[in-house]
Nucleic acid binder design. Structure first.
Length: 497
RNA sequence: GCCCCUAUCGUCUAGAGGCCUAGGACGCGGCCCUCUCAAGGCUGAAACUCGGGUUCGAAUCCCGAUAGGGGCACCA
């Protein structure tokens, strides 16, 4: 079903409007377009649809570019780099849309309508919609109303009978009765076009061959088919990808209710772009290649996915966004990352949390934590203690293991400290065997003793492996922290827990 | 209300009429490993929405019901 005749080179586009952060669904749509272009050796074009002056925000353009760059979805033509079909920002193409709106009017395919928004509102009570009264106006009427200073919009003249069919690359043919369609506004009273006109003029002029967009456009595609027909232009092949649903409500994922709907959420929360794009490949589409065990591969790059991407194999049903699976994938990418590269990703996170980070120390820490964090941000609570200048001595309550009391814990730490201080062997596990012997002498389980030391030295009940951690922290600091823990215990009156 | 789309484990999906005793992944349970937590290994529970057809044979094709989602702006 994918017709990629050489007669029409593959040119696809992503056309967001600059009204805020890029949406996760937008990124997925962009990514499918990107993969489609790469699959067929075509061009991926970025176009900005800012024809709504009220909603357009100045800063949003940069946000869009930032989001796409972060995801690694590089474009071949766009507002920042130009190209042979520019400009790529609709607000700079207004005269084009006005020209073609007039052309439609001159060919009796569109007409002027003078109703105000208020009039339309009362008209659409009961969901009836516009009653097409503008169709009966003559050019003389227009002149009179213009003289009265009344503004008008331009509406497309939808055929009153018959039906319209278009073929969706993922869903097959879709047919709609024309009498269920509205005479949609294509040019607003401020002279700016609506989406329906602007995107068609642009897609045609930019020689877009395939349109891959979100599912919510399906109901207006018959209208678009009719407009292409009115112009006598060849319509691009079209595919609608399913909406991304919220895991909880099942409705469209929204930036208002779901922070993860904005793409900036992911870099702010320690996700890797490779993990996000990898995840998005399997939302509505399926990579499907199997590994040596015959099981479907879960981890792959968008570049590899692009080699076999098939838009006709995209699912037609809505898909829920599974943050848990994405987070798992992110952990996989963290585990597989080169140690130095991971350290470079981790350093700014720690620094942002107020730690002073020595890269050599961090490189020692990385092997201990790489399979213990799923997001970069988790490094702070997992390994912050390695870098804490002002280490807070844990409370006695935190220090005392289960089934032990303050005196017992203090004694255990005291004796452990003596053993550790007397060691001549510098290898990380040199203290382990003597400490196990100590635990046995004191009638403790190794876990109790090690637990007490862990809290004393790391300040946490859960930490990376104890002896490797101590080796990084260093003997001086370790013994000092144990001393302070013993001191805290001696001042405590906590009984057996 | 009207129009449109969709329907396989909780979630993402495989399945292109017999390869289906419905496969994989995440998540969940158990066991192993183990100084905590992870990671890893083994293992378990878990789905074809329902009803009619078509066919020798239906998860797969058709129709209907139901359910979910989307759309009906001088937003895109």
């Amino acid at each position: 079903m994918v017709d990629t005749n050489a007669a029409r080179p593959v040119r696809v586009r992503f056309a967001p409007s600059p009204t805020g952060d890029l949406h996760i669904g937008g990124i997925r749509t962009a990514q499918f377009n990107w993969m489609f272009a790469r699959r067929y050796g075509g061009k991926f074009i970025l176009r900005i649809e800012d024809t709504d002056q009220k909603r357009t925000k100045e800063a949003s353009l940069n946000g869009i570019l930032e989001g796409l760059r972060w995801a690694g979805l590089n474009w071949d033509e766009g507002p920042d780099i130009g190209g042979p079909y520019g400009p790529y920002i609709q607000s700079e193409r207004i005269d084009l849309y006005q020209h073609w709106a007039v052309w439609l009017i001159d060919h009796d395919l569109a007409y002027r309508a003078y109703e105000t928004s208020e009039e339309l509102e009362s008209m659409s009570k009961g969901h009836k919609g516009y009653d097409r009264r503008g169709r009966s106006l003559t050019r003389e009427d227009w002149a009179r109303l213009d003289a009265e200073g009344r503004p008008y919009v331009v509406r497309f003249k939808v055929p009153l009978t018959g039906e319209t069919t278009f073929t969706d690359m993922v869903r097959g043919p879709i047919t709609t009765r024309n009498d269920t369609l509205q005479d949609a506004i294509i040019l607003k009273s401020d002279g700016w076009p609506t989406y329906h006109l602007a995107h068609i003029v642009d897609d045609h002029l930019m020689e877009i061959s395939h349109v891959i967009r979100a599912e919510e456009w399906i109901p207006s595609t018959p209208l678009h088919t009719l407009i292409y027909g009115a112009f006598g232009w060849e319509m691009p092949q079209i595919a609608h990808v399913p909406v991304i649903l919220a895991a909880d409500s099942g409705g469209k994922i929204s930036k208002r209710k779901h922070p993860e709907a904005a793409i900036s959420y992911f870099w702010k929360n320690g996700y890797l772009p490779e993990a996000v794009t990898n995840y998005l490949c399997n939302v509505g589409w399926n990579y499907g290649l199997t590994d040596e065990n015959g099981e479907e591969m879960q981890v792959f790059s968008k570049e590899d996915a692009a080699k076999i991407f098939d838009i006709t194999r995209v699912t037609g049903s809505g898909t829920k966004f599974d943050m848990v699976k994405l987070t798992w994938l992110n952990g996989v990418y963290i585990r597989n990352m080169d140690a130095l590269e991971l350290a470079k990703h981790l350093r700014p996170v720690l620094e942002a949390a107020g730690f002073e980070v020595n890269l050599d120390v961090l490189l020692q820490v990385v092997p201990l934590i790489r399979e213990r964090i799923k997001t970069l941000n988790e490094i702070v609570e997992t390994a912050g203690f390695f870098f804490a200048e002002d280490f807070t001595t844990p409370s006695a309550d935190a220090l005392i293991p289960k089934k032990m009391n303050a005196a017992q814990t203090a004694e255990a730490l005291q004796r452990a400290r003596a053993i550790m201080a007397a060691l001549t062997d510098a290898s990380p596990h040199a203290a382990e065997e003597p400490l196990r012997v100590l635990a046995e002498e004191m009638g403790l389980k190794p876990g109790q003793l090690f637990g007490a030391i862990r809290v004393a030295v790391t300040g946490q009940a859960v930490s990376p492996p104890l002896f490797e951690s101590i080796a990084i922290i260093g003997e001086t600091t370790t013994l000092a922290r144990m001393d302070r823990a013993i001191e805290a215990l001696s001042e405590s009156s906590v009984e057996t827990r």
